[in-house]
């Protein structure tokens, strides 16, 4: 959608051809290992699937954006549209029905992998050059979502994903609470730091 909107600039780093090939090869190798070779291992338990495989794919997308390009989405409306898409994708892959299908069906799981990589990549390109407020609002929403999902999985005594067990569901909930909490602490830290920078600038 962003590309169709004509608002996407993707200048690549002036890296040597070999450097780019090594980076691309590394990305493809990692994707292959996580999505194909180790997929059965990752899909065996819910904590592995939701708190390892899914974030690894997102991180691969983030790494791709940092390592390969200075791609930026310029205008605020396309930044917001991209971040809404990323949030929608994250919500979709947190739904118990999606998690179940991803655990049952390796091809469906691969759709998750691809959308996670794309989301990670788009997330960086949308937040690059964005105001601190927009970054914090987005990351705050992600943290809130992780905490809400974590709380639900941790406290529900009902099996939500038929592919896994209640104890795995509760372990995943705890892990998401910790990740969401850590993200929230980091956001608050950045907020306090940015307040300090603003005050220092006002004093000049």
């Amino acid at each position: 959608m962003v590309v169709l909107g004509g608002d996407f600039q993707m200048p690549f780093y002036s890296r040597s051809r070999w450097g780019s090939l090594v980076l691309l090869g590394g990305f493809c190798l990692l994707f292959y290992l996580v999505s194909f070779t180790a997929n059965a291992w990752f899909s065996l338990t819910m904590p592995r699937h939701q708190t390892l495989q899914l974030p690894i794919m997102f991180a691969l997308g983030v790494g791709l954006a940092f390592g390969f390009s200075r791609a930026t989405i310029k205008s605020a409306e396309w930044k917001i549209a991209t971040l809404i898409f990323v949030m929608g994708t994250l919500i979709f892959w947190m739904l118990p029905r999606s998690v179940d299908w991803a655990a049952f069906d390796a091809d469906f799981n691969r759709i998750m992998h691809v959308t996670m990589v794309v989301s990670g990549f788009l997330c960086v390109t949308a937040l690059r050059g964005a105001s601190v407020e927009l970054r914090m609002a987005f990351l705050g929403m992600v943290a809130a979502m992780l905490l809400a999902v974590g709380f639900t999985l941790r406290t529900f005594d009902i099996l939500l994903c038929s592919a896994f067990t209640i104890s795995q569901q509760q372990e995943t909930g705890l892990a998401l609470l910790l990740i969401g909490g850590a993200l929230l602490v980091a956001i608050v830290g950045v907020f306090i730091r940015s307040l300090g920078i603003h005050q220092a600038n006002d004093g000049l």
């Binding site: 959608m1 991209t82 809404i84 949030m87 029905r97 179940d100 299908w101 939500l160 994903c161 038929s162």
Partner: peptide, 21 residues
């Protein structure tokens, strides 16, 4: 973007009524 996301989630959850298999 919002409409696309809501429509996909709405269809996938049978109108926000079914979140599990």
């Amino acid at each position: 973007a919002l409409v696309i996301c809501v429509v996909v989630l709405w269809a996938w959850t049978d109108g926000f009524r079914a979140f599990t298999v």
